[in-house]
């Protein structure tokens, strides 16, 4: 699981161009949106595509993303349970 969390942090930084953020600065339970990492709705769409492309998880309802993208910890748990690749 810790490997998956590390992988997710690296992907979030790379795909969302968070140039000033390092993997070490993202705690497992940090909020990704709002006051935490400060991601927005466009980032949410990027993350939905990433789940589909890299882990084979299709989110049919974008509202599901609100819960799944709460933190790296929550994302990693969801991916571990639902991934198809």
């Amino acid at each position: 699981m810790s490997e998956l969390k590390q992988e997710l942090k690296e992907k979030i930084i790379e795909q969302l161009n968070l140039e000033d953020v390092s993997v070490e600065e993202i705690a497992d339970n940090d909020a990704l949106f709002g006051d935490g990492l400060g991601l927005d709705s466009i980032d949410a769409l990027e993350l939905i595509v990433m789940l589909d492309k890299d882990y084979g998880i299709k989110l049919s309802d974008p509202k599901e993303g609100r819960k799944i993208f709460e933190s790296v910890e929550v994302m990693a748990n969801y991916i571990a349970e639902n991934r198809t690749k």
Partner: peptide, 13 residues
């Protein structure tokens, strides 16, 4: 590259 799938919005916007 992705065979018309997995398109992200940022670069398009």
């Amino acid at each position: 590259d992705n065979n018309e799938e997995y398109l992200t919005p940022t670069s398009f916007i």
